[in-house]
């Protein structure tokens, strides 16, 4: 039983880190209906900025803040490419994420170990659950901030923009502003996740973000299956996704198959949703 404990703690810790990106995906893709590819790039950018900052003796919390700001600026660029230059949503995200690969590799290098640089986890080495508690607290705090924000005036307009742009225009509000705002927040969240992941793992890899978008999407879809409040469910969705990946590792599936498994997981969730919808329609018809 005790031998399982570190595995479970690891799953939960990675789940809480992933929850930030799941929330980012939810905000961009579900609330704003903007499938933003740049979220993958800003995960790497956040990691690169944090790695560079830590190696230049920056306070680890300040490093996270810098990572978030860099992510927010990237989200702003994606938003402006779409709203001001009329670039297709998907292409705008791909353009930014492609550019960010160069930016990240030039900031953080291809592979960098943090060595003895202090991180937000440095002071917590003595307690086995401290990292978990810190990560859970951060994820919950961010989730509750978003739950609160969605009930504010700005949050209501943001939600409305994703559902009905014409309605927001008729309120005299700027649709481009709210699209860009949502992308700034989503990409800042993704960069925060990248930054935390670098501090948690102790290294930065320019290729570490590859496939993170699809993993977060899987987490988001799991969350939607059990949704009560999406920002809280993002935590569970991410943890369940990590659990599924851990089970595949336990079953000795080669890590090289992990991306395929994630893709198949999304297909399975889609099939389950489709069957559920059919069931609901069937019961209504009956």
């Amino acid at each position: 039983m005790l031998s399982f404990l570190p595995v479970v703690v690891g799953i939960l810790e990675r789940g809480f880190i992933g929850a930030f990106i799941v929330m980012a995906i939810y905000l961009a893709s579900r609330v704003m209906k903007f499938d933003d590819f740049s979220i993958e790039g800003t995960f790497g950018l956040g990691g690169a900025v944090v790695a560079w900052s830590l190696l230049h003796n920056t306070n680890p919390w300040l490093a996270l803040l810098l990572g978030c700001i860099a992510g927010g600026i990237s989200g702003c660029i994606t938003g402006l490419l779409h709203t001001k230059l009329g670039l297709n949503k998907l292409i705008a995200g791909i353009v930014v994420t492609t550019m960010l690969f160069s930016v990240s590799i030039n900031i953080g290098g291809a592979n960098v170990a943090l060595g003895n640089a202090p991180t937000v986890f440095s002071a917590l080495h003595n307690s086995s659950f401290a990292s978990l508690i810190l990560l859970a607290s951060m994820a919950l705090a961010v989730a509750f901030i978003f739950i609160w924000y969605m009930k504010t005036e700005s949050g209501f307009i943001l939600k409305s923009t994703g559902i009905n742009e014409q309605f927001v225009t008729s309120l005299g509000k700027s649709v481009p502003l709210y699209i860009t705002l949502s992308l700034i927040m989503a990409n800042a969240l993704s960069a925060l996740a990248g930054g935390i992941f670098v501090q948690y793992s102790g290294f930065f890899s320019a290729f570490g973000n590859v496939g993170i978008l699809i993993a977060a999407l899987a987490g988001c879809m799991i969350a939607e299956l059990i949704a009560i409040n999406m920002f809280i469910m993002a935590l569970f969705g991410s943890i369940i996704y990590q659990l599924i990946i851990a089970i595949t590792i336990e079953l000795q599936v080669e890590p090289s198959w992990q991306k395929l498994i994630t893709g198949l997981l999304i297909v399975v969730i889609l099939v389950v949703k489709k069957l559920e919808n059919k069931k609901i329609k069937g019961s209504v018809a009956a």
Binding site: S160, F167, G172
Partner: peptide, 25 residues
């Protein structure tokens, strides 16, 4: 086109007041 289907009638009405901003949301 004139409202947000998932929001309640009260929320839609409150949103509509934002245009003249006679009160905070």
């Amino acid at each position: 086109m004139g409202s947000v289907a998932t929001m309640t009638v009260a929320e839609n009405l409150a949103m509509a007041t934002l245009k003249c901003k006679t009160a905070g949301f």
